[in-house]
Amino acid sequence: MIYAQILAGGKGSRMGNVPMPKQFLTLAGKPILIHTIEKFTLEARFDAIIVVCPPDWVSHARDLVAKTIDDPRVRVIAGGAERNDTLMKGIDYIQRTFGTHDDDVVVTHDAVRPFVTERIIHDNIEAVLKAPAVDTVVPAIDTIVQGQTATIAEIPVRETMYQGQTPQSFQIKTLVASYAALDDAQKASLSDSCKICLLAGHPVTMVRGENWNFKITTPYDLRVASALVEKRA
């Protein structure tokens, strides 16, 4: 079976003094979360679309979905304390609700990337049906420097550098086994879900993203997103 999981568990601390998590803020007249869910409902191959929210906001999210999304595949559940806790909460829900099958895959996506395209979602599905893990990336435009504080330690070759986006997609059986094999220190080091599979020795396939598939994290990002929606309209 093919699942989508929309990760809406963040609190949005970098958005500043706002009354709610950033995924519920309004973009062009409706919540960012709803924009994102709508993109996934366009893909008929998803058996279920799981939206994972902060526990205190599950009721609010369910109300929004009931009012705006006419698709019985969409389910809203509570997430965990951190991103990968939230990811695994969604996986656990899938396994408990639909059972476990060797060929199950999941396409995971940030709730605050509302400009994901049908092509990106399609490419993730096609890739994850053949590979254990998939990451959506765009080539790095600027030179990347690595270092700490004010000192540069290394300048990698830009041609081999990419910026990670989402969706990130996984064969569920591989993801669950890889996460279970990590020790506490490895779990604490995770800054990206694909690293779960990398640490377990599994290859991660890359698919092409788009520069406009950006994450709305700060007030500036929200202004850019609003301008982009207005221009498209």
Rank of each mutant, 00 (worst) to 15 (best):
V74N: 04
I94F: 05
H60K: 13
Y3C: 10
L33Y: 02
G80T: 00
L64I: 01
A44Y: 08
V51P: 10
D70L: 11
H101W: 07
A81K: 11
T86E: 01
D92E: 15
T41K: 07
L64S: 06
G29I: 02
T26H: 12
A61G: 09
A61R: 07
I34A: 09
I37A: 04
V58R: 09
R62I: 01
R96C: 11
Q95S: 10
I94S: 02
R73I: 04
V106A: 01
D85A: 10
D104P: 03
A28K: 10
C53R: 10
R14H: 14
V107M: 08
I50L: 12
A66E: 13
A81W: 01
E43Y: 02
D70I: 09
D92R: 11
A81H: 05
V74G: 05
V18N: 06
P54K: 07
Q23T: 15
I32H: 07
V65G: 08
A66V: 00
R45C: 08
H101S: 12
M20N: 09
R75N: 09
V18K: 11
T86N: 02
A48G: 09
M15G: 09
G10N: 13
V107G: 03
D92Q: 13
P19A: 02
A66T: 08
M20E: 15
I50G: 06
S59T: 14
V51F: 02
D104M: 11
E38S: 13
K89P: 04
K67Y: 03
T97N: 06
D102F: 11
K11G: 14
K22A: 15
A8M: 06
R45I: 01
A78G: 13
R83H: 14
F98G: 12
D47F: 10
I37E: 06
T36F: 02
N84V: 08
A66N: 12
V76P: 05
P54V: 09
A28W: 01
G90L: 04
K39T: 10
G80S: 04
L87G: 02
V52Y: 00
A48M: 07
G99Y: 02
A28Y: 03
D56C: 04
L33G: 09
P21D: 11
V65H: 05
N84H: 13
L87M: 11
A44L: 12
M15L: 11
G99M: 06
K39I: 07
K89Y: 09
T68K: 12
V106W: 01
K39V: 06
Y3G: 12
D102C: 03
F46E: 07
A66L: 09
E43T: 13
H101M: 08
G80R: 02
E38H: 05
I2K: 14
R14E: 14
M20C: 14
D71M: 02
D71F: 01
W57L: 12
